[in-house]
């Protein structure tokens, strides 16, 4: 019984939140990885693209709620997602047309494109704050819980409760669907294969008759989709504040690099490595040991490796460590000069 209690404790505070946050990071990291491999630069504006997508979702959610369009207990934000994805894609394409395209044609160094993406980051960040304001926005409606702690305790008779929020369930399911679709596209369709070919060897892709402009278009469609979904899921789960999305860029880069930049599987693994390390390192194990150790063996203190204040810093520490020890990441990624 005690063992079961301790397991539920871990599931409730580490496994479910870890899977949720990990999925959000993984979707973000996939976006960064795809831009990196196909367009060959580190896109610092990706966090703001996510923010833009979330903002579109929020605005559309408001419109739907105002017009009394409801879908039972299902979150409206998920219903409007296809529309806000389209808005995000259009925004990405506009930015590409007016900003990034020029540097691609000039064959600029990737570090110049990186600095350009910082300009885009500023611009987009300003635009978003201008439209929706800098404040906190909660746009989750519908049923809040899939499983409540109280019900779980009643059901099982355990001391520890297990809670699954709807946002957590939605995040995990939607991420799985999106990732399966993405891998199907990349590995099974002709367009997906040509996109991988283009990222592998641009010259040879051109010789093979692959149209680069089409590849770029598809890259932004995928990036916009991933950014919008990742941003919306994060915003639903936590809450939306434009400011936090700027800070999300670094954990996402961490996930992409830890997994091996340029490798989609790596990006997903990286997302979960980051999310679980954050939780495992900052979790207070006192209660856990309370269940599995005899009373007189229980040490003092919270039994925490690092205080929760350092939660996000953990991702930076892992990032720096990986860069120093194995810059190619867990799964060997691409190194683009």
């Amino acid at each position: 019984m005690e063992i079961l209690n301790s397991f539920i404790l871990i599931a409730n505070y580490i496994i479910i939140p870890g899977l949720t946050y990990g999925s959000q990071l993984a979707l973000g990291a996939l976006g960064i990885t795809i831009v990196y491999t196909v367009l060959r630069f580190s896109n610092f504006a990706h966090g703001e693209f996510m923010s833009f997508g979330t903002m579109s979702t929020i605005l559309l959610t408001w419109v739907f709620i105002d017009s009394n369009i409801k879908f039972g207990t299902f979150p409206t934000a998920i219903i409007v997602l296809p529309l806000s994805i389209i808005f995000t894609i259009i925004y990405c394409l506009l930015i590409d047309k007016f900003v990034f395209k020029f540097y691609r044609q000039q064959k600029s160094k990737s570090v110049i494109a990186l600095i350009v993406s910082i300009g885009v980051m500023f611009f987009t960040g300003g635009l978003i704050r201008f439209i929706i304001g800098p404040g906190d926005k909660n746009f989750m409606d519908g049923e809040r819980f899939i499983l409540k702690a109280k019900d779980f305790k009643m059901l099982t008779g355990l001391n520890e409760g297990l809670t699954i929020k709807s946002t957590q369930g939605v995040t995990i399911i939607l991420s799985i669907i999106l990732v399966i679709l993405l891998f199907w596209f990349l590995n099974k369709t002709k367009t997906g294969k040509s996109m991988r070919a283009y990222s592998d060897n641009q010259e040879l892709a051109l010789l093979s008759g692959i149209n680069p402009e089409r590849i770029v278009l598809i890259t932004w469609i995928i990036t916009g989709t991933l950014a919008c979904v990742a941003g919306t899921l994060y915003g639903l789960d936590k809450s939306y504040k434009p400011f936090t999305y700027l800070h999300l860029v670094l954990p996402i880069f961490a996930a992409a690099i830890v997994g091996g930049v340029g490798n989609p599987i790596g990006a997903i693994i990286g997302g979960f490595v980051i999310s679980f390390s954050e939780l495992l390192i900052t979790f207070a194990y006192k209660k856990f040991f309370f269940y599995i150790l005899p009373d007189n063996f229980l040490p003092d203190g919270l039994l925490q490796i690092l205080s929760t204040d350092y939660k996000i810093a953990v991702s930076f520490i892992i990032l720096v460590l990986v860069l120093l020890i194995k810059p190619t990441g867990i799964y060997k990624g691409k190194i683009i000069e």
């Binding site: 991988r196 592998d200 060897n201 010259e203 040879l204 010789l207 093979s208 691409k334």
Partner: peptide
């Protein structure tokens, strides 16, 4: 048909996919 001296394959694509890319057009 042209085979460059270096960088003449798509390294992360499978062999079959490389050939398919040859027939892309």
């Amino acid at each position: 048909g042209y085979v460059p001296q270096t960088n003449n394959i798509f390294p992360t694509l499978s062999v079959q996919e490389n050939l398919e890319m040859g027939a892309f057009i």
